[in-house]
Write a protein that binds this DNA or RNA. Sequence first.
DNA 1: TACGGTCTAGACCTACTAGTCTAGACTGGT
DNA 2: ACCAGTCTAGACTAGTAGGTCTAGACCGTA
Lengths: 205, 205
Amino acid sequence: MIFLETDSFEKENLLYETALKEFSEKGYKNASLNSILKNTGISKGTFYYHFQNKEELYTCLLSKALEIKKQLLEKSFSENGLECDIFLLLQMQAENIIEYAFNHKLFYDFSVSFAKEKGNSIYEKVMNGFKPEIDKTFSKIINIAAESGTLRDDIPMEVLERSLKYFFTNLSDILELFYEIKDKEKLLEYYKSFIEILKNGMSKH
Amino acid sequence: MIFLETDSFEKENLLYETALKEFSEKGYKNASLNSILKNTGISKGTFYYHFQNKEELYTCLLSKALEIKKQLLEKSFSENGLECDIFLLLQMQAENIIEYAFNHKLFYDFSVSFAKEKGNSIYEKVMNGFKPEIDKTFSKIINIAAESGTLRDDIPMEVLERSLKYFFTNLSDILELFYEIKDKEKLLEYYKSFIEILKNGMSKH
DNA sequence: TACGGTCTAGACCTACTAGTCTAGACTGGT
DNA sequence: ACCAGTCTAGACTAGTAGGTCTAGACCGTA
């Protein structure tokens, strides 16, 4: 994990780790800053010297988490080129997310918990800053899907678009489907099957 | 809305309505009992005479919400008989949920917000009581699906099962896909398309 | 009128919250 | 040796949380 280098202090990384856990477990509002500081072993003074408030700590972690997520998507793009099958893209994305979940567990849990903030003011507040970029990336995906001509044309484009957006953004949530499966290979296999369902459905034909 | 008749008091229904809103907006922990009581216009004394604590109020509302949800599923069953196509069942379920969302908005929002409690202790605590029944209902659904022979056999049964369970339990979450669509008919049409995707996929073939 | 049970109001309690403020420890420069 | 800037500790504030407790309103019965 690499964090901002500026304004760094001794226990900075430990603070981030502790905060990631606390926020993931309890959500933004319910997370206790006091508890975070206590578990980190730093004082109020130290904290408020480096951060404006609780919210700044949260957004700091979030921008890191989103940065990683963005890089995952970019990675999926670059590995495939822009001409590729949308389902292959989804699959690459799934693989990357699984990698993410295993290698950056704290950040992964944190972004899962952030998704649950939807509807709360902190979500809107923070998300507004990232929305344009996210929307841009999605319209890119949608364009790829539309132009490739691989999508069914007997289904309203709007439904296809929204469904794709849903599955792309909630992949990690859907991953919870197979939560207790600790074996990475099996998880990957199941995940491929799930995307196969999205591609060709559950029904025998 | 019909509530328990026993131990009823004048502003009981108003209390429930206020509490549903507060819990839906802020989640269990963040919801302020003080605020609920203030907005209802009853005192601590009144509340604690009728309820043991905040949790009992929550579970009371939840059992009502789950009861309604269960009835929806039963309704889907009875309207179709047990021989029916699993996708038809999903569609009936979707229609019922849309009906639910429009006619019991408070309860609907409340169950959406309850789903977000997943991972919190209140969720596990409350859910444990309902889990056996829910699992029973689901194995019923899975059996219908398996016996009917309409599901693909080139996909691991476990993935199919879990996916079905996911879609049945998260239908209302997926409904958020089309959140801003206020036109019921259009919503219904889009929903049918979405289930068509689950059935035959997004890919042209 | 007087009693006893049902119900209600709201002051009060302890625990905890995010955030402020002051005293002082430590450091490098002169 | 002294000073100024950087950084830290933790007591403190104001506010809110869920929950307790007591005084008394109200009502049917006798």
